[in-house]
Design a binder for these strands. Structure first.
Lengths: 335, 335
DNA sequence: GTGAAAGCGCTAACAG
DNA sequence: CTGTTAGCGCTTTCAC
C-alpha cells in the first residue's frame, strides 16, 4: 500500500482495482485517517474557498440585516458551486493584513470602493475578484443596482408628498477607509441622485442636512439625534439603508415625534422585515439575495473560465408603505 | 539573499540587520511577492482560522436574524483574537464532506446536537470544538442559555393572560439532521419546559398543537398556516424563535386575525428588531452576541491552553411587549 | 494496476 | 547575522 494508492483511492477511485480502493478506504476509516486538505491545497494551488471581503468589522457588518441577507445569497450560490466561504474583514484595522494571511480562490468585495488600496493589491496578486456596490474603475467584474433610479424615486416621493425640509443619512466607513482618493461608491451615487432630484424642486441640501454614520440601527439613531441637536428640524428623512432608517425612527420617537405624522422616513434596501416594522417602512427595494448570488456566479466563472469581467446592474424600485405621509402638524415640541 | 533571510524578513525582522530586512521587503513589494500562506500553514500546522459549523445551508441560517447577530459576536471575538472566520455548512447535503475539505484550528458548532455524527468525527480528528445550543454529552466546551427558564416564563405568561388553546412552533432541521439518536437539543429542552409549565395549569399540548418548521419567517408562516388548515384554532402561540413568531403573525393576518386581540404570540431570542416590529414582539431575551463571543473565547482558550472544556450557561428573561394580550373575541372567521 | 521519485513554498534546526 | 539542509503531507508524471 503506497502513497500513490492512497491518493488514488480518494481522488480517482476509478484508477484502482475496486477491491484495493475499498480496502484502502476501510483501513483509512478505521485508522481515522483523512487526507490533509492543506497539503492538497498546496500542491493543487486551489482551495475551493471564496472570500467575502468587507470594509468594516464583521460585527458591524452583520448588524445590518442587508448584509446578512446578501451573505445568504452568496452562501447559497457558493455551496451550489461547491465552494466554502471565508469572511475577510480588517485585521487590527488593516484589510491588507487580513488578506495576506488568507487563502481563497477568489474574492467578493462588498461596499469597497474600487479606489481602495486593498483592491489594487488583490488584483496585483492575480486573485479573481468581483466588486459589489462599488464603481468599477478598471475591467473587473462587478454587480451593482440602479442606485440613481432608486434614490431619485425616494426623493421624489418625499417631494410629491410636500416635504421640503429633508435630512439625508449617508453611510460612512471608518476614517481610514474613506481616506485617499475615492471612486464614487454607492453612497456617493445615491447622494448625487437625492441632490439632483431635490434640486429639481428647488430644494437644496445644506451641509448640515447630510450626515454620515455607520449603516446600522445605532448609527442611524446617533445620526438623527446629532442632527436634531444641531438644530435641524426635518419633516422627511432619506436614509441610505433600512437599518439607519429604523435607527432614525427610534431617535425621532425619543424626541416625541410620530412617524409618519411628524416625520416621514424612507429607507433603502427593503430588508425582509421592512414590511413587518412599525410603521411598515417605505423604502427602495433592491434584490439583495440576488446580488449575492450574481456576484458568486460571476466570480466562479472568472475563476474557471478566466472569463471576461462582466458588469451586472440589477433593478431597484420604490415600495411605498406606512412610514411616509404628507407633512402634518409641525413639531413644536421639546428640544 | 537566501530563503531563510526572506522568511525572517517577514516573520522575525528583529533577527536580521535592519538594512537587509528593509531591502528584502522592498524588493518583495516591488516584485509583488507575498509569502504563500498555504505553505506557511502547512509547516506550522496552524491556520489562524476558526470554523463556524451550521446544521443547515447558510442561506437558511442567515434568514434567521438570530444567526446574523450571533455571527457578529463570533466575528468580533475572533477578530480581536486574531482569527479569521470560515463558515462550514453541509456540502451536497453532507456536513462531513464539508469538514474534510476544510482547514481550521477549531470549530464553533451552532445548533448541532452533540449526538450528530459529525460532532464525533470532528472530535475524533482531534479538533478543538465548542458546542453552542446543544447538549454536551461528553466533556466538550459548550455554551447554552437557560432555555428552561425562558420557555417556562413564556408559557406562564400566556397562561396568566388566560390562554388555554396554545400552538407551539418548534424548530426542525432537515430530515437527515434529526435522524438517528439525538441528545436533547435546545428545542427539546424548550418544548419540555413549555409542556411542564402548561401542564401545571392543566393544559396539555395535543400532537397537532406542536408543529416543527425551519427557524425562519417563511418556516413560521408555513407552520401556522398548516396548523390552521388542520383545524387548530389557538389563541396563543409559543414560537421557539422570533423569526418564526414573525412568520406566524404574518400568516395569522392573512387569515384575518389581529395580533394581539385575536392571537397572542411570544417569540424567543429577542432579536435586535423585536421592539421595532408591529406589534412589538413579546419574547424571551437571550444574550445573542454574548453567546458568540463566549463561544469563541472558550474555543481559543481550548486551542492555546489545550484548556479544559468549560460549560457556560447564560441567562434568559421574558420581555413583555405588545404581541400578547388576554384572549379577546374568539375568531369566528373565514377558514 | 501499482510503486518510486520529485517537488508545491515555506519554516526551522543547524552550521558557517 | 546569514546560508544549508531537511522535511510538512500530499499529488503526479513516469517507469515497472
Amino acid at each position: 500500500v503506497s502513497k500513490t494508492a492512497v491518493s488514488f483511492a480518494f481522488n480517482a477511485p476509478e484508477r484502482l482495482s475496486a477491491e484495493t480502493a475499498g480496502r484502502i478506504r476501510d483501513v483509512a476509516d478505521s485508522l481515522g485517517y483523512r487526507p490533509n486538505p492543506l497539503a492538497r491545497m498546496l500542491t493543487q494551488s486551489e482551495t475551493m474557498t471564496l472570500g467575502v471581503l468587507t470594509p468594516q468589522a464583521l460585527g458591524v457588518m452583520f448588524a445590518n440585516p442587508f448584509f446578512a441577507q446578501f451573505s445568504g445569497g452568496v452562501a447559497d450560490a457558493a455551496a451550489e458551486l461547491g465552494y466554502e466561504l471565508h469572511f475577510i474583514s480588517p485585521l487590527h484595522g488593516s484589510l491588507g493584513l487580513a488578506m495576506v494571511r488568507t487563502t481563497v480562490d477568489g474574492v467578493v468585495a462588498i461596499g469597497l470602493s474600487a479606489a481602495h488600496p486593498e483592491v489594487g493589491q488583490i488584483e496585483a496578486a492575480g486573485l479573481p475578484m468581483v466588486l459589489v456596490d462599488s464603481d468599477d474603475l478598471s475591467g473587473r467584474g462587478s454587480v451593482v443596482v440602479d442606485d440613481e433610479a432608486g434614490a431619485r424615486a425616494a426623493a421624489e416621493h418625499l417631494l410629491t408628498l410636500g416635504h421640503r425640509e429633508i435630512l439625508v443619512l449617508a453611510v460612512d466607513g471608518p476614517a481610514s477607509e474613506t481616506a485617499g482618493p475615492r471612486a464614487r461608491g454607492v453612497m456617493e451615487r445615491r447622494l448625487a441622485a437625492y441632490r439632483s432630484a431635490l434640486a429639481g424642486a428647488g430644494v437644496v441640501l445644506e451641509q448640515d442636512h447630510v450626515v454620515a454614520c455607520a449603516a446600522t440601527i445605532d448609527g442611524g439613531r446617533a445620526a438623527f439625534r446629532g442632527a436634531w441637536a444641531a438644530g435641524v428640524r426635518p419633516t422627511g428623512v432619506l436614509a441610505m439603508s433600512d437599518a439607519m432608517a429604523i435607527g432614525a425612527i427610534r431617535a425621532a420617537r425619543q424626541h416625541g415625534l410620530h412617524v409618519p405624522e411628524d416625520l416621514s422616513v424612507v429607507g433603502f434596501d427593503d430588508i425582509e422585515l421592512a414590511a413587518d416594522l412599525d410603521p411598515a417602512l417605505t423604502t427602495v427595494h433592491q434584490p439583495i439575495r440576488e446580488k449575492g448570488v450574481t456576484a458568486v456566479r460571476l466570480l466562479v466563472s472568472a475563476i474557471s473560465d478566466g472569463g471576461g469581467s462582466k458588469r451586472v446592474t440589477l433593478e431597484t424600485r420604490l415600495v411605498v408603505r406606512a412610514s411616509t405621509a404628507a407633512p402634518g402638524r409641525r413639531h413644536d415640541l421639546p428640544p
